[in-house]
Computed example of a mutant assay.
Amino acid sequence: MDQITVGLTQAAVWTGSGIEMWDIGIPALEPGGLLVRVDLATVCGSDLHTVSGRRHGACPSVLGHEAVGRVVAVGDATSAAEVGDRIVWSVTVPCGRCPRCASGFTAKCSSVRKVGHESAESAWVLSGSYARHIVLPRGTAVARIPDTMPDAVAAPAACATATVMAALDAAGVVDGRRVLIVGAGMLGVTAAAAASERGAAVSVLDRDPERQRQARVFGAAEDDGGRTDVAIDFSGSPSAVQAALGRLDIGGRLVLAGSVAPGAPIAVDPEAVVRNWLTITGIHNYEPRHLHRAVAFLHDTDAKYPWETLVEAPVPLAELASVLRPTPSGILRSSVAP
Results as ranks from 00 to 15, higher is better:
Gly7Pro: 00
Leu8Asp: 13
Thr9Trp: 02
Gly18Trp: 00
Glu20Met: 04
Asp23Ile: 00
Ile24Glu: 10
Gly25Pro: 09
Gly32Asp: 00
Gly33His: 07
Leu35Trp: 02
Asp39Cys: 08
Leu40Gly: 01
Thr42Phe: 01
Cys44Phe: 04
Cys44Asn: 04
Gly45Trp: 03
Leu48Asn: 08
His49Ala: 15
Ser52Met: 11
Arg54His: 14
Ala58Tyr: 10
Pro60Cys: 11
His65Val: 09
Ala67Gly: 15
Gly69Met: 07
Arg70Leu: 08
Val74Arg: 15
Asp76Glu: 10
Ala77Lys: 15
Ser79Phe: 06
Ala80Lys: 09
Val83Lys: 13
Gly84Tyr: 07
Ile87Tyr: 05
Val88Phe: 04
Ser90Gly: 15
Val91Phe: 11
Thr92Ala: 10
Cys95Met: 04
Pro99His: 08
Thr106Leu: 10
Ala107Asp: 12
Ser111Val: 12
Val112Ala: 13
Lys114Ile: 00
Lys114Ala: 10
His117Leu: 13
Glu118Asp: 09
Ala120Arg: 02
Ser122Glu: 09
Trp124Ile: 03
Ser127Phe: 05
Tyr130Val: 04
Arg132Asp: 12
Arg138Ile: 09
Val142Trp: 05
Ala143His: 03
Ala143Pro: 04
Arg144Gln: 15
Met149Ala: 06
Asp151Pro: 05
Val153Asp: 09
Ala162Met: 03
Val164Arg: 02
Met165Ile: 01
Met165Ser: 11
Val173Pro: 14
Val179His: 01
Leu180Cys: 00
Val182Ala: 07
Ala193Thr: 03
Ala193Leu: 06
Arg198Pro: 11
Ala200Arg: 06
Val204Tyr: 06
Val204Met: 06
Asp206Ala: 12
Asp206Met: 10
Pro209Tyr: 12
Glu210Lys: 13
Glu210Ile: 15
Arg211Asp: 10
Gln212Ile: 13
Glu222Arg: 14
Glu222Val: 14
Asp223Asn: 13
Gly226His: 13
Gly226Trp: 10
Ile232Met: 13
Phe234Ala: 07
Ser237Trp: 07
Ala240Lys: 10
Arg247Asp: 03
Leu248Met: 07
Gly252Val: 01
Arg253Pro: 01
Arg253Gly: 03
Leu254Trp: 02
Gly258Thr: 01
Val260Thr: 13
Pro262Gly: 08
Ala264Lys: 12
Pro265Phe: 08
Asp269Ile: 06
Asp269Cys: 11
Glu271Lys: 11
Ala272Thr: 14
Val273Ala: 14
Trp277Phe: 12
Thr279Ser: 14
Gly282Arg: 11
Ile283Glu: 09
Ile283Gln: 14
Leu291Val: 07
Arg293Gln: 14
Arg293Met: 12
Ala294Asp: 05
Lys304Leu: 11
Glu308Asp: 09
Glu308His: 05
Val311His: 03
Glu312Cys: 06
Val315Glu: 03
Ala318Arg: 11
Leu320Phe: 02
Leu324Ile: 02
Pro326Thr: 02
Pro328Ala: 06
Ser329Met: 06
Ser329Ile: 08
Gly330Ile: 06
Arg333Ile: 04
Ser334Val: 05
Val336Arg: 00
Val336Thr: 04
